[in-house]
């Protein structure tokens, strides 16, 4: 099975609007999913500039799906959905 890729946006907007709290994912994801899921920090994904949607930041991408106003819980939920749990 292909690995699921989680990209946490480290752009300034996402960081300021609460992305700092998502750093926990770096610990939680390997512990919970082993090597089935890979988590990486990413330079600005550009999602905040589409229609100037900074109010929906922070953003995380789980494969191609965008999680807006991301929290640790919301990201884990999306991963579970992808894994068909």
């Amino acid at each position: 099975m292909e690995k699921i890729k989680v990209q946490v946006c480290l752009g300034t907007t996402c960081f300021v609007m609460g992305g700092a709290n998502l750093q926990e994912l770096n610990d939680i994801i390997p512990r919970k999913y082993g090597d089935k899921v890979e988590v990486v920090g990413s330079n600005c994904l550009g999602l905040c500039s589409i229609q100037w949607e900074y109010s929906k930041a922070p953003y995380v991408k789980v494969d191609d799906e965008v999680v807006h106003e991301a929290t640790v819980e919301k990201v884990l939920e999306m991963i579970d959905k992808k894994l068909g749990k």
């Binding site: 480290l10 752009g11 300034t12 907007t13 960081f15 300021v16 330079n43 600005c44 905040c48 930041a57």
Partner: peptide, 17 residues
């Protein structure tokens, strides 16, 4: 710091760039 952050967001400044 929050206000400086808000200023960056409003002015679309990307620190890493």
């Amino acid at each position: 710091y929050e206000e400086l952050g808000a200023l960056f967001v409003a002015k679309k400044i990307e620190i890493l760039e």
